Amino acid sequence: MRYLKQLLGEKSVLLLMLPFLLGIGFLMISFGKGPSHLLVNKWNSPAADIFFKYATHLGDGAIFAVVIVILAFVKFRWALYELVAALMTLVFVFIAKQLIFKGMPRPTAYFENAEVLHLVEGVKTHAMNSFPSGHTITAFAVFVILILIVKNNFLKILFAIIAILAGWSRVYLSQHFLGDVLSGALIGSMIAVFSCSLVDNLSIFKTAWIDKNLLQLFSKKHDE
């Protein structure tokens, strides 16, 4: 698959993402679900509280809408990558959280004494439907697509960092366990790869307008 090979060939991105994913996996295997969360929950500070309180919004579903609108002014094909990924993310998260893994407790419900957790003031914590992390799926789906379409290496690294921070924020805020975030990162990345491939290969999208943008369409209508 072209886009999977491309992603695996992004050395600067992998140098950031692989340690993040492998580190999470190591902590989970070494300490287990609950203890690993308590361990990383101790890594906190007032400055980090403020930072992650807002950084977590980089995984909100609204980020898809923002990126889709921006990309529509650049190239419709790229906007469609994100639109298809948004729809796939919506369906996958709904099925996973509401049907398959419904009721799985989040950290505040998992621990009998929630006072053992460091919680950030002003952040409303959820109790159930922990697996997988929807915010992490969204962040990785959105920003991995951007990594695949931009040429600038600095932007690729920036997008990888944003995805990682959005994912880590879910653990920092005790909204999810490490496993929820690890699975979310992998699922989101695969959704990104599959969405790009789907748009490129479906005949319905093989039209002249797909490689144009909104400005070009408006300009054409004005000329007519």
Rank of each mutant, 00 (worst) to 15 (best):
L214F: 03
G188Q: 09
A208Q: 05
S183H: 02
G184F: 07
V199F: 09
V181A: 11
F194Q: 01
S197T: 04
S203W: 08
D200G: 04
C196D: 10
A185E: 06
H222R: 15
L198H: 05
L178K: 11
S189D: 02
W209Q: 02
T207G: 04
L182P: 01
T207S: 03
N201M: 13
G188E: 12
D180F: 00
D180E: 13
S195F: 04
H222P: 00
L182D: 00
V193R: 10
D180C: 10
M190Y: 14
C196L: 01
I204S: 11
F205N: 09
H222T: 14
L186Q: 09
G179I: 11
S195R: 13
I204T: 11
L215R: 13
V193P: 13
S183A: 15
L215N: 11
D211S: 00
D211V: 07
F218E: 12
D200K: 01
C196F: 07
L215W: 14
D211N: 03
S195V: 10
N201E: 02
S189T: 15
L217A: 11
K220T: 12
L186M: 14
M190T: 08
K206M: 12
C196E: 03
K212E: 05
K220P: 07
L182E: 07
L178P: 02
D200T: 06
N213E: 03
V193L: 14
M190K: 06
D211I: 05
L202S: 04
K221D: 07
M190W: 10
W209H: 07
F194T: 10
D180P: 00
G179M: 09
I191M: 11
V193D: 09
K212P: 03
D180H: 10
L182Q: 04
M190C: 13
S203K: 00
A185H: 01
S219Y: 14
S189F: 00
K221W: 14
I204W: 10
I187N: 14
G184D: 05
S197Q: 06
I210M: 00
I187C: 13
S189N: 05
